[in-house]
Simulated assay, not measured.
Amino acid sequence: MAEERDVFRRARGRTLSAFGEDDECQWKAPFYFIQGADPQFGLMKAWAVGDCDNGGDEWEEEIKLTEQAVQAINQLNPKPKFFVLCGDLIHGMPGKTVKNVHR
């Protein structure tokens, strides 16, 4: 249970607890990270119906694509040092509850 709560790490005081100062103060080897940007959950339906102001109430397609991206990232070797997600996270709130969303 404690591990589940620790899935999303947050920075505090310009420090990210996932990277301990003793171990990560100086990079010792090459690394890479992944930046994701603007997932805009809800935008695909809004574009499909031609109503970008009101049509973003479903996230099913974006969730499928996000799951595919997570699966692809999890298969990378070597693993990225970290993943950062930036930009507009949502376009519109879902009109119904989305079930069975996996991290």
Rank of each mutant, 00 (worst) to 15 (best):
A72D: 10
W27S: 14
G87M: 13
Q75F: 04
E21I: 12
L85V: 10
I90W: 03
K45Q: 07
M44H: 08
D57K: 13
M93V: 13
A69D: 00
I73N: 12
E21N: 05
F31T: 10
E4A: 03
N54I: 06
E24K: 03
D53I: 14
F31R: 09
K96H: 11
K79C: 05
D57E: 14
E3I: 11
V49F: 01
E67I: 02
D53L: 14
G50V: 11
A72F: 07
L89N: 07
W47A: 09
V84M: 06
E58G: 00
G95A: 08
K81Y: 12
V49K: 10
E62D: 05
D23M: 09
R14M: 07
H102E: 05
K64D: 14
E62T: 04
R12G: 06
T97D: 15
I73C: 09
G56C: 08
V49D: 10
G50Q: 13
L16I: 15
G87Y: 04
V84S: 10
G42W: 01
E4L: 09
I34M: 04
N54V: 03
D6A: 08
G56N: 07
R103P: 03
Q75L: 15
R9G: 09
E60I: 03
K28Q: 15
W59A: 02
D6W: 05
E4M: 04
N77W: 11
F31M: 07
Y32K: 05
F31A: 13
G50F: 08
R10I: 11
G50K: 11
C86L: 15
G13Q: 04
Q75V: 06
P80V: 11
K99P: 02
